[in-house]
């Protein structure tokens, strides 16, 4: 008998629900993005995000069931992102999931947001183990080693800003509109690497740090302004992107070598970054590594990936009871 997971994801500024069959097949997904609203404020405002989630949660759930032509009776279990993320946002999805699990007496599966990003790839092609996963987004920058399904070893992560966050902040400083990450990526292809920026946290650990390079960009912009000059936006974008991509590539390739792994998965919103894609594609080809990057629609936050991950958590019996709480920060184990 097939397993149908109803998944809910509200960890940041997307209200999303999805129904996933056997961890691999997407039956229906609805994603309601709040991006346009938050653009007015230059970034995600947590309280506004929470307010929009509660306004839309039942509409998104209904549309998902209608799209799938299913009722709650067809659902095997309910998966939900419990963390990490914005606590007020997480709580809306969590409470809706707990309520449905309670009413219909269905198993409740707590899913870590990063596990979701990794398993987004499973909707494209079954994951092959062992693998290294690089999860990069506006809120996260992490490297994981996975020996088998749903076993995660956290190798390292950012010590300060997430990579996507650094992109957005740099975008603001060089006057690129929110969300700046994709636009900086585009600009980077038109410039020349002329600015002397540091290679961030260039050590043997698997940790990252992007606040230093962000400050370096801010200082350069201010120095030029004091001289009555403007920086060259495109050249700054190129210089910044080159450094960020270099360190992400370097540490990821190092992890593959150390763990003797030939499968690499890249996930999260920044997996859409073309500079990162090009660099990793080149290095993986040179080192016989099988690189998997999901389509853009699976890179950004969505509930389909939570349903995919939730299926494997469910098979391992990793369930929660109705006391399940949301966690703003939580390590994936």
């Amino acid at each position: 008998m097939s397993t149908y997971i109803l998944a809910i994801e509200t960890s940041c500024d997307e209200t999303s629900a999805s129904i996933i069959k056997d961890g691999r097949e997407e039956i229906a997904t609805v994603i309601l993005s709040q991006m346009k609203t938050h653009a007015n404020y230059g970034g995600v405002v947590p309280e506004i995000a929470s307010r929009m989630h509660i306004e839309n949660i039942t509409l998104v759930l209904e549309e998902t069931l209608v799209k799938a032509n299913m009722t709650m009776d067809d659902i095997t279990a309910i998966a939900v992102t419990y963390g990490p993320g914005l606590i007020g946002s997480l709580l809306i999805g969590l409470m809706a999931a707990k309520t449905l699990a309670f009413i219909y007496n269905k198993p409740l599966i707590p899913v870590h947001h990063h596990a979701g990003h990794i398993y987004a790839n499973n909707l494209v092609k079954p994951l092959e183990f062992p693998l290294i996963a690089l999860v990069v987004s506006g809120g996260h920058t992490n490297l994981f080693y996975m020996p088998e399904d749903y076993k995660f070893k956290h190798l390292g992560g950012t010590l300060d800003d997430a990579v996507g966050e650094a992109y957005d902040k740099v975008a603001r400083v060089i006057n690129v509109p929110y969300p700046g990450g994709p636009l900086v990526d585009k600009l980077a292809h038109t410039g020349v690497d002329t600015y002397k920026l540091p290679l961030p946290l260039n050590d043997n650990s698997y940790n990252f740090s992007f606040s230093g390079i962000k400050s370096a960009v801010i200082n350069l912009v201010h120095n030029e302004k004091q001289k009555g000059k403007e920086i060259n936006k495109a050249n700054m974008a190129t210089s910044f992107q080159n450094r960020v991509v270099e360190i992400l590539t370097k540490k990821t390739m190092h992890a593959l070598k150390e763990y003797n792994v030939t499968n690499l998965i890249v996930a999260g919103g920044v997996a859409a970054n073309s500079g990162l894609r090009e660099s990793l594609t080149k290095e993986c080809q040179a080192n016989d590594v099988n690189l998997i990057i999901p389509e853009i629609k699976y890179c950004t936050d969505n509930a389909a990936m939570i349903g995919a991950a939730g299926y494997y958590a469910y098979k391992l019996g990793r369930l929660a009871d109705l006391d399940l709480n949301a966690k703003a920060s939580e390590e994936l184990k």
Binding site: E62, M72, G88, L91, I92, A96, T99
Partner: peptide, 19 residues
Amino acid sequence: SFTGIRVGLTVAKTMAWSL
């Protein structure tokens, strides 16, 4: 409490919608 209101109201809203 903004968060407090939303916790109970999400339960009520989800339950009423679903039932």
